[in-house]
Amino acid sequence: MSSRGSPPGDLTDAAIPTDQTVPPVSGGMDPTFVAEIAAEPGGEHIRRCFACGTCTASCPVREVTERYNPRRIIHMALLGLREPVLTSDFIWLCSTCYSCHERCPQDVRITELMHAIKNVAVRHGHIHPSFRTQVDQLRQHGRLYDITAFENERRVEQGLPAITEQAKEIAAIVAATGLDELVGTQDG
């Protein structure tokens, strides 16, 4: 806790290598937006937020960049700022540390809420490219990193058992949940 909210000029300021400009809020207010988030698994508690800011004060990402601010995202969502939220880069910056999740006095369940907002963004065609790559990798290999012959040689050298990739069932789950469409069907 002592590391949060450090004074200007210390290490945390110097630790911001990225663009610090906060994106301007624009676009119309859509009252259906918060209902859509609340209907998403994990998003159910969004309306409980009373904007105390415990999440932002607890956030280790906010400690290194002003671009990510969970209280701001939740408030934007509550105001119905659909497009600015769904098309933003900042919704992808939650590191899923669960600090805010555990500390939130209103049990907004913020880590799961951020997942719900991202799920809504994906459904409306706004997926971060890194996740597209991961879905494709899972579909092809069943895991985030391939187990190549080289990897198995290294494993055996270390006295560890070789692993055979089993992607078929995972590819079936990806197809059954409609995620195939997110990554295209180039390799069937």
């Binding site: 998403e40 698994p41 994990g42 992808w92 899923t96 997942h115 719900a116 991202k118 799920n119 994906v122 997926i127 971060h128 996740f131 991961q134 879905v135 899972l138 985030l144 949940t177 409609g178 995620l179 997110l182």
Partner: peptide, 8 residues
């Protein structure tokens, strides 16, 4: 990795 993409 799929929690951010699709809950189910």
């Amino acid at each position: 990795p799929l929690k951010a993409v699709q809950h189910d």
